[in-house]
Amino acid sequence: MSDLSYHLKAESAAEVCDASPSDFVQLLKPRVMSLVVLSALAGILLAPGHVNPVIGFASLVSIAVGAGAAGALNMWYDADVDAIMIRTRGRPIPSGRIDRDVALGFGLMLAAFSVLTLGLVANWLAASLLAFTIFFYIVIYSMWLKRATPQNIVIGGAAGALPPIVAYTAMTGSFSLSSFVLFAIIFVWTPPHFWALALIKSGDYARAGIPMMPNVKGPDRTRLEILIYTLLLAPLGVLPFVLGFASMLYGALSLILGALFVALAVQVYRRRQGDAAEKAAKQLFAFSILYLFLLLALIVAEHGLGLAAFAAQ
């Protein structure tokens, strides 16, 4: 006898998802996404020749959604450590607003849609790069490096630095030195940015068992490495002007901002105890965000408004 009728286990009302759309938006890590949008926009505007605004916008949306998908998949995988850390325990999964499996499905669906859309709208080389970026962030960084080595955010930073290359490739189908320079700036910017945060939140990371630099090599070694990376970053930040794809205004601003960044890193290096040490690390963390935002915003403004050609004269 075959009886194909069956009933699914009924959900009780308590098990029904009561997440709001804003909880799903939170899964996308909107603040990280905003940096991705800005750096990808810079990559799009650096492309030579006329960029169709519709194709540019659709590519930008695809890259942003791809970054959001990576954020959702990261929250799916890191739900256990997010629940331990004070900084992250209010996220949708550890706070119980979204089920882990729902986040996995949401992230995978968005990843697939973003890659396919970029492939159809722009080209498949850019789509492959976007897929690689998501893979790198989830598998190489989240699943492997994050819990294995204090160099986690150094190598993992490549995922956050790739969007300008993806965006430039979406517009041109090829690579360029200018997009690699933006990659290098974001890549070298990542360690001082995250290690400043790790100095402030070292207890949080230690409780969760994440081997961040201050927990493994100690705060003093972290301060030294922050200073070294900042000394590398300051000249890198000026490179767009030196190579001729940013104006004199950008050159001057990047010099001033780079010098300020180094000055704050020196403060972090020198102030090692008590409130002064924490204050210096907080200042460096806040300034690092402003630094990258201003450099990228200026490149976007110059190329978006056609000021680069004017300024170069």
């Binding site: 009933h7 699914l8 286990k9 009924a10 959900e11 009780s12 009302a13 029904v16 998802c17 009561d18």
Partner: peptide, 13 residues
């Protein structure tokens, strides 16, 4: 083993 039950959602849900 899994008899169908009616699910009544709360106003918030």
């Amino acid at each position: 083993p899994f008899p169908r039950q009616d699910v009544s959602l709360t106003p918030a849900q």
